[in-house]
């Protein structure tokens, strides 16, 4: 098992949940902040999860072609 695959999916899923929270309930704010924390953190996690999945897919292709 390539650990990047489950980790990638995990962060992608959490990122999607946070991003949609940020998009659809933008009024959801922390008591002391006036920033859409869910949206930014969610987008970052989607990128990070996608990056891990990309790495995993590349290394799988590399193994298969060898």
């Amino acid at each position: 098992m390539d650990l990047r695959t489950p980790s990638g999916w995990f962060f992608l899923l959490i990122g999607l949940i946070l991003t949609s929270l940020g998009l659809f309930t933008p009024q959801l704010r922390a008591p002391l902040l006036n920033a859409n924390v869910n949206l930014y953190c969610g987008l970052f996690m989607v990128l990070f999860g996608g990056f891990l999945l990309l790495l995993a897919a590349r290394s799988k292709r590399g193994r298969e072609s060898r």
Binding site: L18, L21, L28, P31, C41
Partner: peptide, 12 residues
């Protein structure tokens, strides 16, 4: 965390 994270990020 309670003051700076909204629901969602708080869960994370």
């Amino acid at each position: 965390m309670a003051q700076f994270y909204p629901a969602g990020m708080l869960g994370v």
